[in-house]
Design a protein around this nucleic acid. Sequence first.
DNA 1: ATGCCATACCCGGTATGA
Length: 285
Amino acid sequence: MSVVAVGWQAWGMRLATWNVNSVKARLPRLLAWLDENAPDVVCLQETKCRADQFPAAEVEELGYTAAVHGDGRWNGVAVLSRVGVDDVSMGFPGEPAYAGEPDDQQLTLAEPVPQVPEARAIGVTCGGVRVWSLYAPNGRTPDSAHYRYKLEWFAALREALAAELASGTPLVACGDYNVAPTDDDVWDPAVFVDSTHVTPSERQALADLRALGLHDVVPTPMKGPFPYTYWDYRAGAFHKNLGMRIDLFYASADVAGRVRSAYVDREARKGKGPSDHAPVVVDID
DNA sequence: ATGCCATACCCGGTATGA
């Protein structure tokens, strides 16, 4: 029996997105999570390794083919799939490269200026669904060159996804967007005054993506009223549920209309050696 | 309880994160 050939429309799919904060440091937990949750497709962010350092053989033993985009110690994205890996795109057309500017106080000589886009996006067709794993720039501070780069990156992403959606293919664009869509998506809006992740321009960038016909598949929180996906390692933030919803699952209308369930797997944030993000799991009929 | 920074790079200190 081949699930690969039949695809999602007949069998349904379990998809997930997870910022693992280093795939090498997280490998034991990642493998255990794959084994326990049996997703068909997993989007990973912050893999923090070159493609040749990615533990492809280890995930292969669990039945997954890895499509990997990595350039070193920062960033890095991947898609794991057991329902096919086709048409892999490393980055997207028009994706900007970050370059610090002379007036950027945070640019130092120790920080090389990359001439090529960072490893923040990979697109893969899995069982008939176009899947993007995304890691948006942080932005650092609203007055920095990095913030302007963040907004440029979102604008270019919008154009690239618009072109793909025009073909009519089922599409999901999920990952760490580094933007909290509403004030309900941060534990205390007062803490984020004059900070990135909540500014009107960042939220408008998300609205511009939704205007393409992408739907925000909001997961069910497994505890508490808010579906946070990230909690800082420091100060017992997870224990006190001081979190943010910044890992988003955007889906075209045909996919969003077939969502059976979506939830934050906060179990994966517990215990020894977790990522600071929890996976978002989405089941599609 | 879920528990109070972590990661890579390079080997003690820095850059980054949200």
